[in-house]
Design a protein around this nucleic acid. Structure first.
Lengths: 346, 346
DNA sequence: CTGAAAGCGCTAACAG
DNA sequence: CTGTTAGCGCTTTCAG
């Protein structure tokens, strides 16, 4: 625990440079309107004194914080079971950093924390929020909307009431699912099953829709509901094999689910991909790559999603600062494309 | 992007309650020294107006921020390849939240970001920092020390110069490694190899030391250097099998490495654990659990590490606030115990 | 183009 | 116990 030293103030810099505080302030904030001989003197003084502006003082007058909250609601162990979260944060962090914004992380462990988060957001500590809304029935998005903070969601939120659509960034879950299933069809498979994700998340619903887009109503016994976990994948696969022993392909809602399915398939002596082809979703490493056999899967660019969320928010904030209409035409939700990654399992 | 509304100030609350700003301030900050009839009136006014203190204004005068920076240097893909990071953050977040502190996340992508982080820390935006120092030659810890911010490290930093030891929280890497290797010995194995982690990280060095503690100098060919990745594990395992075909056990520096080793073993037709027993380190899920066979491994309590780091820092800050000596006796580094988790691979 | 002056919202002596 | 009074360090009109 080192000793804290008091930092030099604007005043000190001004004194050293022989100018007024106002001039130093101008130079520090971009330096327009200060002529060259002076500006340079000021920069020098700043350098020599190691001056760093006091953000609190600045915020007090500007009412801006150059800080964005990232809210992650994660009752789900899932959020921590794959590196989603980390990649997303990395993308967000890069974009925020590039625009000199700080990232304030708000993790919630259930309802008890919701009030705290809402209060914090409403308290005007940050300029905006990036929110990951995992569940359809999650009250958090509503609370946040009430807090009146500019917000961008990660993953399409289920905003069932008639309010104007919130801003969000999502992967093309439906399109990706279609591509996966089509690939299985192209492989000549005819009994193609789907193990769904937790259907209280839009991503799971969208992937199921994508499956149905190409399979039509097919045999309903080929669809079994699960929960995005390896254990869930195992249970679902067992059920599937019991119900439809003739299944020859499985599109799993994510890689972890596929992992569980692979295990059951192996245990029941079905060869992959010869007897049953398997496709996952996410391309989470090292899971997909190290699976046996390595998993064919639908990749989404997680980091890019994070980056875009931040970009959208920042752009919106800038627009609003310039007095643009709240629903600025320059910002709108984004759906990112997915890519089918072919490995050995299908 | 909803509209921002200007929040009520202390002044407004004071007016409504018919008292002075000072009184409101007292009530809001714990309420000592305000008699009951008044205090209640103030609380009421706060409630009715939905008053939330302006943190910037408060910081400006108190010079405290109730915010802690978490610095994660991650040139390593590794940091994102396993959920370490997420669990650690969760532990930190829980502890910080319990003490009404905010978590400011600083991710770095290499040298270029170091200056930025140092500047931010030196700028006095946060009360302290939690730093994950991954590499022995990392200049970041030094920079941070210069910034003069109270800091706790995650993982024992390699502070080779003679400075008084920094505060840190770490797992008992050496003890855990010893336990793993002893287990292999107890299994009757005699040709026990070690695939190391990246030896520029103290955790890798400590695990190697633990291995040596029980194996003595053994056959040096049984130790092969690697890098904590599955690919590295594969290469190392191949080399090992070529050098010492009689190897009958492998202690891998982490689970990902073990995964690579398992793959090569399978490919070369060695049965696990019959021919070669394998132990990993970390117990990262789902990797360890879903491996084939499920991995026996040394578990460390990652989340607890995070929690402890935060606790140590906060305690130190509180101590210093009360005017305690910088190196308060109440805070000192902590090394957490590990547990051997037995599954099928050894 | 530059300086002087007026606060931003809050806490912390200091009186009363 | 409560109110008055100074600022914390910075930006921002407004004059010059």
């Amino acid at each position: 625990m080192t000793e804290a030293v008091s930092r030099p103030t604007l005043e000190a810099v001004a004194a050293r440079a022989g100018v007024s505080r106002a001039t130093v302030s101008r130079v520090v904030n971009g330096g327009d309107g200060v002529r060259e001989p002076l500006a340079e003197r000021v920069r020098q003084a700043v350098e020599e004194l190691g001056y760093v502006p006091n953000q609190a003082a600045r915020s007090l007058v500007t009412k801006r914080h150059d800080a964005v909250a990232v809210v992650i609601a994660e009752p789900e162990a899932r959020v921590f079971a794959d590196p989603f979260f980390a990649l997303q944060l990395r993308g967000i962090s890069k974009e925020l950093t590039a625009h000199d914004n700080q990232l304030v992380l708000l993790l919630t462990e259930g309802r008890a924390d919701h009030a705290r988060v809402a209060r914090y957001l409403a308290g005007g500590h940050v300029d905006g929020a990036l929110v990951f809304s995992l569940h359809l029935d999650d009250p958090l998005p509503g609370l946040i909307r009430n807090a009146g903070v500019p917000t961008v969601f990660g993953g399409r939120p289920d905003w069932s009431d008639g309010t104007p659509g919130p801003l969000y960034v999502d992967s093309d879950n439906r399109g990706g699912a279609r591509e996966a299933v089509r690939h299985l069809v192209d492989l000549g498979r005819t009994r193609i099953a789907h193990i769904t994700g937790a259907l209280d998340q839009t991503s799971a619903v969208d992937r199921l829709d994508g499956y149905r887009d190409v399979m039509g109503e097919a045999d309903p016994r080929l669809v079994v509901e699960s929960d995005f976990t390896p254990g869930g994948g195992e249970r679902a696969m067992r059920e599937l094999l019991d119900r439809c022993p003739d299944v020859d392909a499985v599109f799993a809602a994510n890689d972890l689910t596929a992992l569980g399915a692979l295990r059951v398939l192996r245990e029941r002596g079905r060869r992959v991909p010869e007897d049953v082809a398997v496709i996952g979703f996410d391309d989470v490493l090292p899971v997909a790559e190290e699976a046996d056999p390595p998993l064919t899967t639908v990749r989404q660019d997680i980091e890019e999603m994070g980056r875009l969320m931040a970009r959208l928010l920042l752009r919106g904030l800038a627009g609003r600062a310039r007095g643009a209409a709240p629903a600025d035409a320059a910002v709108s939700s984004v759906v990112l494309p997915t890519t089918l990654i072919r490995r050995a399992s299908a």
